[in-house]
């Protein structure tokens, strides 16, 4: 029993990562009816941005420190401002040794912002030009983007795996009954839950979120109501990419080995999770992700690790045969 509970804890943690990635798939699908095959690679890039972020923070801190010190030297005669600058400069130079948690947070933010910007570039550069073409043309474009990111990743980062810095040393917390949870799992769960609530807030409570809902209903109707459909689509890509980036960093905290093809399978499975829950449906993506994570961990634990990659698809086929529109999806009758 305690083993089962332990599997459940691991499954839910893993599932919350799938959920974060699945949200991006489902939002983009809801708005463009496009399977954004490159989404899994955004997750990979999130991990790599996170990998390079600490160096960036240290370098930027040092640079800012030097600059401020120079300013301090020039202005040292000025009362208050002079000594203040000096102290700030010293603090920034020490940025490399700032608190673990703060550094981890900064890494997360940098990865999310980086991928968000990349999301804009991809949407504007590749997807927007094919938006009026057939859906298959758009799909092939997405596949092209996916291949480009992977092979570009090999070129820039090198084909060999890299090891994500251990920003937060791991430790285990006993939950009682022989079940333990690592502090990293706690972080993964907390951050994903916070991000999901943030997304929920944006989609249901803000103007831009309501505009997203309108656009996913009908581009035509939304634009007639004065919504800039282009801008909403870009925003959706930014949101999705940021969530995928967060997932990348969170996973890398726990499994530090990262490489340019790491996004292929999780991306595929997160997409399956989105379909499982009912594609286009935001709570469905979260539910699908959790179901998928738990199922996968249980198969590894009780059947065989080698069948891990198959369970996602077996589950998918079974659920689609019973509920053709996914667990939370609504079957839509075509208007004749």
């Amino acid at each position: 029993m305690s083993e089962f509970l332990q599997q459940l804890v691991n499954g839910v943690t893993w599932g919350s990562v799938y959920a974060l990635i699945a949200l991006g798939y489902t939002m983009v699908y809801g708005i463009l009816r496009l399977i954004n095959f490159a989404h899994g690679d955004i997750y990979m890039l999130g991990a790599f941005f996170g990998f390079y972020a600490p160096g960036l923070i240290v370098a930027a801190g040092a640079r800012a420190g030097e600059w401020l010190e120079g300013a301090h030297r020039v202005l040292h005669g000025v009362p208050v401002l002079g000594p203040g600058l000096g102290r700030l400069a010293a603090a920034l130079s020490a940025a490399g040794s700032m608190a673990d948690a703060l550094q981890a947070l900064l890494v997360l933010v940098i990865a999310m912002v980086g991928c968000g910007l990349l999301g804009i570039v991809i949407e504007r550069g590749a997807y927007k030009p094919v938006r009026r073409s057939s859906r298959l043309a758009a799909l092939i474009t997405a596949i092209g983007v996916s291949l480009l990111l992977e092979n570009g990743g090999v070129l820039v980062f090198g084909p060999d795996p890299k090891f994500f810095p251990q920003i937060i040393p791991s430790s285990n917390i006993a939950l009682g009954g022989g079940v333990t949870i690592s502090n990293q799992q706690v972080i993964i769960l907390t951050v994903s839950i916070l991000l999901m609530f943030a997304l929920r807030f944006i989609v249901t409570r803000t103007r831009v979120g309501k505009a997203m809902q309108a656009v996913s209903h009908s581009h035509m109707a939304a634009s007639l109501m004065g919504i800039s459909v282009d801008r909403i689509i870009t925003f959706t890509f930014v949101l999705g990419s940021m969530l995928a980036a967060a997932a990348g960093v969170l996973v890398a905290l726990q499994n530090p080995k990262i490489e340019p093809y790491m996004g292929v399978m999780p991306g595929l499975k997160a997409f399956v999770a989105a379909v499982l829950g009912g594609i286009g449906n935001i709570p469905g993506a979260v539910l699908g992700g959790l179901v998928m994570g738990v199922a996968e961990v249980l198969v590894v634990g009780y059947v065989s690790p080698t069948y891990r990659d198959a369970i996602a698809f077996v589950l998918l086929i079974i659920i689609l045969l019973v509920r053709p529109a996914g667990i939370l999806g609504k079957a839509q009758a075509e208007k004749v």
Binding site: Y29, L268, T306, Y307, A310, I317, L321, P324
Partner: peptide, 28 residues
């Protein structure tokens, strides 16, 4: 046969799943 019930992208993802399942089985 499932294409009797599934449309468009759902069918696509089932065929994708089929391909992956075949590969995993062969691997095992």
């Amino acid at each position: 046969l499932p294409s009797l019930r599934l449309r468009g992208d759902y069918l696509a993802i089932v065929t994708l799943g089929f391909g992956e399942i075949i590969r995993v089985i062969i691997t095992n």
